[in-house]
């Protein structure tokens, strides 16, 4: 069994309820989970070593911090890389650049990522349960129109604001700067681990060397014991 997850079970139970509630809002999306039912998908967070296990079912996931069985597929990466895999539209970036390692059933990993990224919620259907189809549709059309306008405006505003903050104000880093920084953090961590391993190896070498030196009973010219 993997070591106990530092993520408390209570938090995972809450996460499970929240995600399943979210999935329930998109019944067609949830139906895509059907064929994956009972498969065991593990996410391993590099640097922390803990895992999250997802078991899809017809109406959502069961999520555990440990599961005493070999997963069908294991996705291993830094928290950020795993988040990118789920959220970004271009998962291939994360998969093919080697930021996320996949072990086991890669097709399953791909479908899991697709599912997480492709959840769409049909608000109209949800409202129609309360108000009936006609009213919900009218409401939906208005909301969609408003939504489109709003999204366009927000996009423009967002672009303007982003440009101002990044380029003119120099208050925020650009995406490339941020990714560069995150890569450097990852590299620094790896370097740190390598250095620690190297020091450890040198330390061992020194100890075995000095023991060998003492044991051989060398004269004064030998290395100091």
């Amino acid at each position: 069994m993997t070591p106990a997850s530092p993520i408390p079970d209570a938090a995972l139970a809450a996460l499970e309820t929240a995600i399943n509630h979210y999935i329930a809002l998109d019944p067609e999306g949830a139906a895509r989970l059907g064929p994956l039912a009972g498969r065991l998908i593990a996410l391993e967070f590099k640097g922390f070593g803990n895992r999250l296990y997802f078991i899809p079912g017809a109406e959502g996931f069961q999520i555990y911090g440990a599961y005493d069985a070999e997963p069908d597929c294991l996705l291993r990466g830094t928290s950020l890389a795993l988040a990118r895999l789920g959220l970004s539209r271009r998962k291939e970036d994360a998969l093919f650049s080697g930021q996320v390692e996949v072990e086991g059933d890669t097709a399953l990993a791909q479908r899991f990522g697709d599912f997480m990224a492709g959840l769409e919620i049909d608000w109209e259907e949800q409202v129609s349960r309360l108000t009936g189809d006609a009213l919900a549709h009218a409401l939906g059309s208005r909301l969609r129109a408003a939504g489109h306008w709003g999204r366009r405006s927000l996009d423009i505003l967002g672009l303007d604001l982003k440009e101002y903050l990044q380029e003119e104000g120099r208050l925020l880093p650009t995406r490339y700067e941020l990714e560069g920084f995150l890569d450097e953090v990852d590299r620094l961590r790896d370097d740190g681990e390598r250095l620690a391993a190297r020091v450890e190896r040198l330390h061992r070498l020194l100890q075995t060397g000095s023991r060998a030196g003492c044991g051989a009973g060398q004269d004064e010219e030998g290395p100091p014991c």
């Binding site: 139970a13 039912a37 065991l40 555990y64 911090g65 440990a66 599961y67 005493d68």
Partner: peptide, 17 residues
């Protein structure tokens, strides 16, 4: 008791089929 039962499921490690 819900958490106790969750832990039981984790230890059972039951698989599809």
């Amino acid at each position: 008791h819900r958490l106790w039962k969750r832990y039981t499921i984790e230890l059972a490690g039951v698989r599809r089929g």
